Simulated assay, not measured.
Amino acid sequence: MKKTLQNILTAKKGQQGFTLIELMIVVAIIGILAAVALPAYQTYSDRAAFSEVVLAVTPYKSAFEVAAQTGRITALADADEGTNGIPGPAGANGEVQSVSVTDGVITATDVNGVTYILTPNGVTAPIQWDPSGSCVAAGLC
């Protein structure tokens, strides 16, 4: 059977692609997904950046615990930065603005002014740390 030009044109007419409404639906779905995903990603990236601040207090925690276990500090008033094996104050480094220790309380601040505070329950083992600061309300720590 011979195909005519009319038959070929009729067959191609059924394969025209997507309609405008289908494309609009796809764009709307992508917009909704982006509206949900972007805030979640922002929170994730903020928490990842703040983890540098949480990590910066580790040497101070360890030094405090070692000093308490070895008897170098017998009261929280003895636990200040730069004394009894506890490191001195840390300056700005990456996301960390500062880290300090006063009476055993470790305070770290990030470049945005968000604080992470660790308070020990005393100087006798096992030492438990109570986290507080503006990072708790912000959901970063």
Rank of each mutant, 00 (worst) to 15 (best):
A67D: 00
V54M: 15
G113I: 02
I117W: 12
V36S: 07
Q69A: 14
V27E: 13
T4W: 04
D80H: 08
K3L: 15
L9I: 10
A67L: 01
V123P: 00
V27K: 13
V54Y: 09
G91F: 08
S45N: 15
A92W: 12
D46L: 11
D103C: 03
T74A: 13
G14Q: 15
V105E: 07
T83F: 11
I29A: 07
D103T: 01
V66A: 10
G82Y: 01
Y116L: 14
Y41S: 10
I86M: 10
Q128N: 12
A92L: 08
D78V: 04
P87A: 03
I29K: 00
F18T: 13
A28H: 02
V96H: 06
L38T: 14
A92V: 10
A108M: 04
F18N: 13
P126W: 10
T107H: 13
A37P: 03
Y60F: 14
E95S: 11
F64G: 00
K13H: 12
A34H: 01
T43V: 10
A125G: 04
K13G: 14
T107E: 14
I29V: 06
Y60Q: 06
I21N: 07
I21F: 06
K12N: 12
T115D: 02
P120M: 10
A125Y: 08
T43S: 15
R72F: 11
T119Y: 02
G113R: 00
A108I: 08
A108G: 02
I25A: 10
V53R: 02
T43D: 15
V26S: 13
F50C: 01
G85M: 00
A79H: 01
S51R: 08
V105S: 03
A67K: 00
A77I: 06
A77H: 03
I106V: 05
V114E: 09
I21C: 07
Q97H: 08
P120C: 10
I29D: 03
R47F: 08
W129K: 00
S45F: 15
P87F: 01
K13Y: 14
R47Y: 07
A35F: 13
E95I: 09
L9P: 01
A35W: 08
